[in-house]
C-alpha cells in the first residue's frame, strides 16, 4: 500500500521538476538543466517520451516471455500476464508515438518523418494492433493463447532485421546528441538524474498497472493465481 503512495509522490515530483527546472546555456547551479541547441524548452518532452517508448519495448519482451512460458506449460495464468503486458505495451506505444510526433513537429516541422526510430515505434504499434486483432478472432481460450504467443515470437524474430535495414535506407533525423547507441550521455548530471528518475517512475507505474490488470482479469475469469 505504502509503495503506491511513494510511487505517486515520486512521479508528481518528477513531473513538476521536469517542467519547472530552469534551463540555461551554461548551467551553474545544481538545479539548472542544460539547453540543447535547437530544442531548448521542448527538450523537456524527453523525460516523458523516452520512458514510454522504452516501456513499449519492455512490455513486448515481457508479453513474449510469458507467451513462451504458456507454450511450454499451458498455464492459463501465463497467458493472462502475456495479454495484460501487451495491452499496456499498446498503451505506452500509442503514447510514445504521439509524444514522438509532437516532438517531431516542433523540432523538424512535420509530425511524421519516417526516420528509423519513428518507423520502428510505428511498426511496434502495428504488431500490437495485429496481436489484438488476432486475439479477438479466436474464441477457444487455449487456441487464442497459443496463437498469440506464436505470433509475438514470429514478430520478435523479424524485428531485429529493422536494425540492419534502417540505416541503409533513410538518413536519421532523430536527435542523437543526447543518447547514442554507445550509451555515452551528454546530459549534465541534473538532467541525467531527472531522466533516470522519470524512467524509474514510469517503470514502476507499468509494473503496478500490470499487476493490477492481471489480478482483476483473474478475478473476472476466476482463475487460480
Amino acid at each position: 500500500m505504502s509503495w503506491k503512495i511513494l510511487l505517486g509522490v515520486w512521479m508528481t515530483v518528477v513531473i513538476i521538476l521536469s517542467l519547472s527546472l530552469p534551463m540555461s546555456t551554461h548551467p551553474q547551479y545544481w538545479y539548472e538543466l542544460p539547453t540543447i541547441p535547437g530544442l531548448e524548452e521542448k527538450a523537456r518532452i524527453m523525460f516523458f517520451h523516452v520512458p514510454t517508448a522504452w516501456l513499449a519495448a519492455v512490455a513486448f519482451v515481457l508479453s513474449m516471455a510469458y507467451g513462451i512460458r504458456y507454450l511450454r506449460k499451458k498455464n492459463a495464468s501465463d497467458d493472462v500476464k502475456s495479454a495484460s503486458a501487451a495491452g499496456l505495451g499498446l498503451l505506452f506505444c500509442i503514447l510514445a508515438t504521439v509524444t514522438g510526433a509532437i516532438w517531431a513537429r516542433f523540432s523538424w516541422g512535420t509530425f511524421w518523418n519516417w526516420d528509423p526510430r519513428q518507423t520502428s515505434i510505428f511498426v511496434l504499434l502495428l504488431i500490437y494492433g495485429a496481436y489484438f486483432a488476432l486475439r479477438s478472432a479466436v474464441e477457444i481460450e487455449e487456441k487464442r493463447a497459443a496463437l498469440s504467443a506464436v505470433y509475438s515470437i514470429i514478430a520478435a524474430v523479424t524485428m531485429p532485421f529493422f536494425m540492419f535495414i534502417m540505416p541503409r535506407i533513410l538518413a536519421s533525423l532523430h536527435p542523437d546528441p543526447i543518447l547514442n547507441v554507445q550509451g555515452k550521455v551528454h546530459m549534465n548530471s541534473t538532467m541525467l538524474v531527472l531522466f533516470l528518475a522519470s524512467l524509474a517512475g514510469f517503470t514502476g507505474l507499468f509494473f503496478w498497472m500490470w499487476n493490477l490488470h492481471v489480478r482483476t482479469t483473474n478475478i473476472e475469469t476466476q482463475q487460480p493465481q
Binding site: 495485429a130 514478430a155 523479424t158 529493422f162
Partner: peptide, 8 residues
C-alpha cells in the same frame, strides 16, 4: 498480421 512480419 502479415504486414509487420513482411515489412523488413
Amino acid at each position: 498480421l502479415a504486414f509487420p512480419i513482411l515489412l523488413p
